[in-house]
Every structure is written in C-alpha cells, then in structure tokens.
Amino acid sequence: MTELIDNASSSESPIMTETAPPAISAGDGPLKMTTRNVDVFYGEKQAINGVSIDVTMDNVTAFIGPSGCGKSTFLRCLNRMNDTIPIAKVSGEITLEGEDIYAPSMDVVQLRARVGMVFQKPNPFPKSIYDNIAYGPRIHGLASTKDELDNIVETSLQRAGLWGEVSDRLQDSGTALSGGQQQRLCIARAIAVDPEVILMDEPCSALDPIATAKIEELIHELRGKYAIVIVTHNMQQAARVSQRTAFFHLGTLVEYGVTSDIFTNPTQEKTRDYITGRYG
C-alpha cells in the first residue's frame, strides 16, 4: 500500500493533462473488460489520468512502463483492489462483461473471484497445497462433495502445470514449495474459483529464469481460457507473452496497440525511448 503511494508521489514532473488516446477496438476476440476515462487519486495526488483500455478474451494484455507510471495502480482498479487503500479514489467507468464493477450493486468478493489476481511475490497460505487450492471453491460454494472439491484441486493444479510435481504430496505445506512452484500454486488458486480474468502483477520478478519460463509457458496455455492482463518490468517478457501492450508514463496511457508493433515500431517517442533503454 505504502509502496503504491510512494511510487505515485515520487514522480517529479506534473501529471500530463493531454487527452488519452482512444481505447483500441477489440478486433479479434470477445471484449471482456472495458475502461473509460479512468482517473485515480491518492489523496490530492493524481496517479492515473484518463485511461481508456479494452481487454479482450483472446489476447494477453501487458502493461509496461517505468516505476511509478501507474501500471500496477491501474491493474488494481480492474478488481477493485484499490478499495483497500482509504485515500485512493477511482473515477471513470470500468466494466466486466458490460457490467459496471464500481456500481453499488456489485459484490466485491464475487468480483475478485471473477477477476483473480497473482502478485509479485508468491503468497501461498500457510496451509497444505490442497487447502491452498480448495479454500476459494469452499468459501464460494463451488463444490458440494469431497469428490467435486478433489476434482477442482486436480484440474486447477493441472492447468497451472503443477499437478505432476505435487500430486503425491498434496498435504505438504504450500510454503515448502520452491518460489516458482509457489507462484504456480497461486495461479492454480486463482484458477480454482473459475475466474473470467486473471490479473498478474509482475508475477515473475521474484523467480529465476527457469521458473519464469514455466510461468510464461503457462500464460500461453491459459490464453483464451481466461482474459489475462500482466504488469511486467521485463520488456522482453511483455514482448514474448502478450498480444497487446499498453505503455504508461506518469499516470497516462501513452500508447496501446499490437505488441509486435509496439516493440518494433512504436508511434510515440516516449514509448520508443522507454523500450530502447533511453528513458531517464
């Protein structure tokens, strides 16, 4: 929480007030989430300025940008994680399947099941591997029998590419796994409640290259089953795993487009300076 606020207030330049580029149309796949003119304030400080982006079902969407640019803040708006920060105020429109997620009638717990999240540092519960996965389905009432629950646990671990490594030790503690396995356990935990969207906030930044490659492979496999939005500092990773990339700078969406275009021929000078290593 503090980190977010610090990041947002550490930028020395004023927030840009230029009009945000229009959201790109979905084009190739059903629209899952839309955002229009989203502003986020932390107290007096504006962290996000008029961002409009469409998230589609068939594409992995990557958010890139320097520290403090607002990409994580914006990601957290998509499942109302910013609600937990008292001084954060979000305005504009964010919809999931056409439904306003900030409407008073929206059940936030339900929303976070539909829009799951995986964090920078793997954060398994201090419980068994089995219980880590079973927790969500239990509280959301997704399984009525032990067999059904077993089935959800197995399917989720399989989808997260972890089943083969843990199937014979489901009662071991989740925290005893390696970092990469823990992160896949967290992805399995998000999958277990059958979400529509998975948000990943720098999911590989604490992992070694092999564990990172496994997560990237997993993202490829999950693409199409869930709408995926990933925040990453690693530009090569954004280029590898995503089909759409959004570049944020000082709270503004500078450029949003097809990933291969952004990385080979960006249209904005700021994007180009950032991705070619000329920023700052």
Binding site: M235, A239, F263, T264, N265, R272, I275, T276, G277
Partner: peptide, 10 residues
C-alpha cells in the same frame, strides 16, 4: 547482450 527494441532492433 542488449536485446534491442524498436528502431535499435531495426
């Protein structure tokens, strides 16, 4: 070594 992008890559 540099994993160039955009106009550097081109």
């Amino acid at each position: 070594l540099r994993a160039p992008m955009a106009d550097d890559l081109r």
